[in-house]
Simulated assay, not measured.
Amino acid sequence: MTADTPYDPRPHAHPGLHAIALFEAAKGLLALLAASGLELLGPAPLVRWLQELTSRFQLDPDHGALAWLSQTINPDSVHLAAAAVLAYGLLRLLEAWGLWRAKAWASWLGCISAAVYLPLDVYALFRHPGWLSTIVLIVNLIVVAVLARDLVKRRR
């Protein structure tokens, strides 16, 4: 590629774009399944599950995050949560489609959305060191690097 030839990602799309697209599509499909599950189950099983957690870990059923959560679960909150998870899933699927087709906007979307999590990943690594938090940080760093590389190549 010469300096005066514009970067066309389609003929030589980086295999990393396709790998990230598949990963994002999997996240999107899981989110759609979760949203469907929330709508199908409704609030009753969620409240029962929280009560079981509270009793299993011998937590105070009247105080704490689990108590607050079990009090706020109702049909409206479940519908709202399902709608938020549905929107997240659709956004991930849209990003996956764009990355598969090597669209610049999808690289921007993916790079920004992965970079937003990096400070939280670093915090999690220091707060809970282990192989899982290390892998999550490394994967997000790779995603940001691959998408940033694609964006830099497009600008040349």
Rank of each mutant, 00 (worst) to 15 (best):
M1H: 13
G130W: 09
F57Y: 15
P6V: 10
W100P: 02
A145M: 12
I20L: 14
P43Y: 00
Q71F: 02
I20W: 07
Y123S: 08
A114K: 02
G130V: 09
S55K: 10
M1T: 13
F23A: 14
L120F: 13
S70Y: 00
L94G: 15
L59R: 06
H14Q: 10
R48I: 04
L151I: 13
A34E: 07
G64S: 09
A106T: 03
R56K: 11
L32E: 14
T134R: 10
A67V: 07
G37Q: 10
L141D: 01
R154P: 01
E39C: 04
C111F: 00
L99Q: 01
P129L: 11
D8E: 15
V136L: 13
L29P: 01
I20S: 03
D76H: 12
V144T: 04
S107V: 05
L93T: 09
W100R: 08
I142M: 15
L32H: 13
L80C: 02
A44K: 11
L141F: 05
R156F: 07
A83C: 08
A106F: 05
V78G: 02
D121R: 12
L41T: 12
V85Y: 04
L93H: 07
W105A: 12
G110T: 04
Q58Y: 06
E52N: 12
P45W: 05
D121F: 07
G98E: 03
R156C: 05
A114S: 14
P45Y: 06
V85W: 03
V116M: 08
V136H: 05
F126T: 12
P119N: 08
L59I: 07
L53H: 05
T72A: 13
H63Y: 09
L118I: 15
L41R: 07
D121K: 11
G64F: 06
L137I: 06
P9H: 02
G42P: 04
I135G: 06
N140R: 12
R127E: 15
G110N: 03
G64W: 06
A124T: 12
I138L: 15
L125D: 02
P43E: 14
V116T: 11
P15Y: 08
V136N: 13
L38P: 02
P11H: 08
V143M: 05
A106Y: 03
G64M: 06
T134D: 09
G89P: 00
A148M: 13
A67W: 05
W105I: 07
I112P: 00
L137N: 06
R155Y: 08
S77P: 03
G89L: 01
R92N: 08
T2L: 10
